[in-house]
Write a protein that binds this DNA or RNA. Structure first.
Length: 838
RNA sequence: GCGGACGUGGCGAAAUGGUAGACGCAAGGGACUUAAAAUCCCUUGGGGGAAACCCUGUGCGGGUUCGAGUCCCGCCGUCCGCACCA
């Protein structure tokens, strides 16, 4: 073998060999235990970045471990290939989006291969292929049939830079998720929506089953779904026979209601204006409040604005009439667009009423308290620690009890109703762009909205289109596409020219991997039955809400139409940390990007992988260091030299049975052999346990380094024959097995050099030997009153009595005992002694 | 405001309630070399001491415990998500 470690040569050799041997190709084998490792599919933006690398090698380490544990491992990859950047690039460079996309895929595909990630490449998909996106259209039609896809005119979030609509989930701080400095504007448009709200409760309830998902992801989703339980209450108003419905979660405070606030967009507002004594003046106020309304705000603490409408509403509980005010903080999109104002017990109402001189009436006080002379802030106790006052029949009840009683009474009397509100809104999926899945709908003057029949799918994207980035949907300018015939009456009709949000594409792609060829259905149910659920999904936290909630929604719909028989597709989720450099996320704008290609060229893929995993636990952000990576490189060079030194001698040494079954007779081991093998099996124990659950690969690699250091210390003993060749071989083989999870190419190269003909992935993961891992002598710290005062060495089996005696005899300890009375001696077996003195 | 995570050397970090700082980076010293690189060896939380050792130390203040970086309570600070959501 080459005495020098040449990563480039080794890595290309093994990548070729693995491909030839079809090492990572998996087939469904009913009856055989399976493991599905999935990483979030990348957008082919041009080049792989370090965040991708981190994502994929975490999955790769796991996949390789699972293969060696004997699982049938599905580890696929694909491309989230539709989307805006392709279109923008097309405009800029006069290249067709498909061309730009496929050349990026080609580049990134090669980069992944260069990293040696263990993918089954036969299963690769790209969502822009008609064979794929026709099924997006199919899902859309199914949802349409079920009433889950619908069209409505609505105010939408519009990004002027993207020239398209954004889903609520894609608006970040009032700005576009792709253009963080561009405020979203509002537009009224006819749009297609998917009724995710129909599954709001299921999405929330089913989270209970997601016990292996990170708590913060669940918390974020729960937040986003935003369930709150409360009641509607009807307030009569003095403007015709209209009534005004409000939503509250604190019906118990209704006797403290001193006003009603409504959103300026509320449908009642025009009627109030019409009936107002000074309609012009009120209309001006409405416009003013609208302009300062919450949706337009970018700063968080918007000043409260309001105006009295001059009308009043009647509180059905006490018959009291209170003024109706327009308020800029009331959201039309949530609840009913109207709220009762209880300034004493809601901070926003408190601020508003103070600012506008509206009365404040306390109706809840602490259990043993009284109404304060003056409130400084709203008192918001809602549980058992409060007590109602000024609330006629309900006085003395706790808020908790009052809520139940008052809701029931309101229902009985017909002016109220228990209800549940969700914050999540339906998913707007129409995009006024070209590079996406055409929405399979047709508009006919006679028949209205008509779905494209399933047999006519896919509705293909026309290849010829002029892209300018301006105006409406590009597809509208392609007459051959737009003009069609109505599937129902055969008359002339127009096609829908919007395309789908690309998050539709990524909501079910991981099903397609199980059979990416099937042409008769979106998924192969037998294959899905074998491979699902995804055992481990790995990706960035930034998808916590968007993708990870859409994908859950899709699965629930798939269950409903009988495609799958489960409701959650992913058993375990892992969210990795970001890759940071110089304190900021790597980005082209900041110029702190580290290119995987450069790292591979300079150090090789194995070093890139090893360093990325060694730098810290994978869930934490990783601060990239150009110097620390040298350490990873040095380590691999050292291991290479270490093994190379013995490789020649190894080849001839009897390998005996498989690594996992090979037993060395403990009793016959020499001291240095014992020491070396102890370290081997301790390391193996640590790595095995860690791979099963904790995934702190940094500590695994540290342990492997320690093992290598231990072997280096014993090298002289090995050279002099005090460690027999079969023991050296066992040590090095175990080291390589473990290393292969993190640096697979060099591990296979060295494995071959030590006389093996099959890649490591074909070996069984060895079990650690408890007997060999055990220490036979222990150093036990001795404390006096909890402070370390000495150390004793005892045999592992030493009796408590002996440990106690030895501890007290220790000279360092003796000094501190100093003749004082020993109150207690705590002996923790194998661990420590603590002598308590007075 | 609500929810979540976190706070340990010069740096990345490690530590089932049991020897704080494993492993690595950086730094300093030494060996090898004509020289450099590479490699190898030693030192490295702070303070004291010639040394054995001693004192001190995990954001701050309390508590539980024989024993707390770890558990509990209260602060301070950082990061992330949601947010006038009634």
């Amino acid at each position: 073998m080459d005495p020098n470690y040449d990563p480039q040569k080794i890595e290309s050799k093994w990548q070729t060999r693995w491909a030839e041997q079809r090492l990572f190709e998996a087939e469904a084998e009913p009856g055989r235990k399976k493991y599905y490792v999935l990483e979030m599919l990348p957008y082919p933006s041009g080049e792989l970045h370090m965040g991708h690398v981190r994502n994929y090698i975490i999955g790769d380490a796991l996949a390789r471990y699972m293969w060696m544990k004997g699982y049938n491992v599905l580890h696929p990859i694909g491309w989230d290939a539709f989307g805006l950047p392709a279109e923008n690039a097309a405009i800029k460079h006069q290249r067709h989006p498909s061309e730009w996309t496929s050349s990026n895929i080609e580049t990134m595909h090669a980069q992944l291969k260069r990293l040696g990630v263990s993918y089954d490449w036969r299963r690769e998909i790209a969502t822009c292929q008609p064979e794929y996106y026709r099924w997006n259209q199919w899902f859309f039609l199914k949802m349409y049939e079920l009433g889950l896809a619908y069209r409505k005119k609505s105010r939408v979030n519009w990004c002027p830079l993207c020239s398209t609509v954004l889903a609520n989930e894609q608006v970040v701080n009032g700005c576009c998720w792709r253009h963080e400095d561009t405020p979203v504007v509002e537009r009224e448009l006819e749009q297609w929506f998917l009724r995710i709200t129909a599954y709001a409760d299921r999405l929330l309830e089913d989270m209970r089953a997601l016990v292996r998902w990170p708590e913060r992801v669940l918390a974020m989703q729960e937040n986003w779904i935003g369930k709150s339980t409360g009641a509607y209450v009807e307030f009569g108003i003095n403007a015709g026979d209209e009534s005004l419905r409000i939503f509250t979660t604190r019906i118990d405070t209704i006797y403290g209601c001193t006003a009603v606030f409504i959103a300026p967009e509320h449908p009642l507002v025009p009627k109030l204006v019409a009936r107002s004594q000074s309609p012009e003046r009120l209309q001006v106020e409405v416009e003013r409040i609208k302009a300062s309304a919450v949706r337009a705000r970018l700063e968080v603490n918007l000043e409260k604005q309001g105006a009295d409408t001059g009308f009043t509403a009647r509180n059905p509980f006490n018959g009291e009439s209170v003024p109706i005010w327009l308020a800029n903080f009331v959201l039309m999109e949530y609840g009913t667009g109207a709220v009762m104002a209880v300034p004493a017990h809601d901070q926003r109402d408190f601020e508003f009423c103070q600012a506008f001189g509206l009365p404040i009436r306390t109706v809840i006080v602490p259990q043993n308290g009284e109404a304060p002379a003056e409130l400084k802030a709203a008192y918001t106790e809602s549980g058992k620690n409060g007590k109602l006052i000024n609330s006629a029949p309900y006085d003395g009840l706790t808020p908790e009890d009052a809520m139940a009683r008052m809701t029931a009474d309101a229902e009985a009397k017909g002016f109220g109703q228990r209800t549940i509100q969700f914050r999540i809104k339906d998913w707007g999926v129409s995009r006024q762009r070209y590079w996406g899945t055409p929405i399979p709908m047709v508009y006919c003057d006679t028949d209205g909205i008509v779905p494209v029949p399933e047999k006519d799918l896919p509705v293909l994207l026309p290849p010829q289109v002029r892209l300018t980035g301006e105006g409406e949907s590009p597809l509208a300018s392609v007459p051959e596409f737009v003009n069609t015939t109505c599937p129902r009456c055969g008359g002339p009709a127009r096609r829908e020219t919007d395309t789908m949000d690309t998050f539709v594409d990524s909501s079910w792609y991981f099903y397609r991997y199980t059979d990416n060829k099937i042409a008769t259905a979106p998924i192969n149910q037998d294959a899905v039955k074998y491979w699902f659920p995804v055992d481990q999904y790995i990706g960035g936290i930034e998808q916590a809400i968007l993708h990870l909630i859409y994908m859950r929604f899709f699965t629930k719909v798939m269950q409903r139409i009988g495609l799958v028989d489960f409701s959650e597709p992913v058993a375990r989720l892992f969210t990795q940390g970001m890759v940071i450099k110089d304190g900021a996320k790597m980005s082209k704008n900041r110029g702190n990007v580290v290119s995987p290609d450069e790292i591979c060229a300079k150090y090789g893929a194995d070093t890139a992988r090893l360093y990325t995993l060694f730098a810290g636990p994978p869930e934490k952000d990783l601060d990239w260091s150009d110097t620390a990576i040298e350490g990873a490189s040095r380590f691999l060079h050292r291991v290479y030299r270490q093994v190379a030194r013995y490789a020649g001698r190894m080849a001839g040494v009897q390998s005996g049975p498989a690594l996992s079954e090979r037993k060395l007779n403990t009793a016959q081991l020499r001291p240095d052999e014992r020491r070396l093998l102890r370290k081997v099996h301790q390391t193996l124990r640590h790595v095995t346990e860690d791979m099963e659950e904790r995934w702190h690969f940094n500590t695994d690699i540290a342990m492997i380094m320690e093992l290598s250091n231990e072997f280096a210390d014993l090298q002289a003993a090995a050279d002099q024959g005090q460690i027999r060749p079969e023991v050296v071989k066992s040590c090095l083989e175990h080291l390589l097995v473990m290393l292969s999870l993190f640096a697979p190419h060099v591990a296979d190269e060295l494995w071959e050099a030590t006389g093996h003909s099959q890649p490591l992935l074909r070996s069984a993961w060895p079990a650690h030997d408890q007997e060999l891992a055990a220490e036979d002598e222990l150093e036990i710290p001795v404390q006096v009153n909890g402070k370390l005062r000495g150390r004793i060495r005892v045999a592992v089996g030493a009796s408590e009595e002996e440990i106690r005696r030895r501890a007290r005899a220790d000279s360092g300890v003796g000094q501190h005992l100093n003749g004082r009375e020993v109150v207690r001696v705590i002996v923790v077996p194998q661990k420590l002694v603590n002598i308590v003195i007075k």
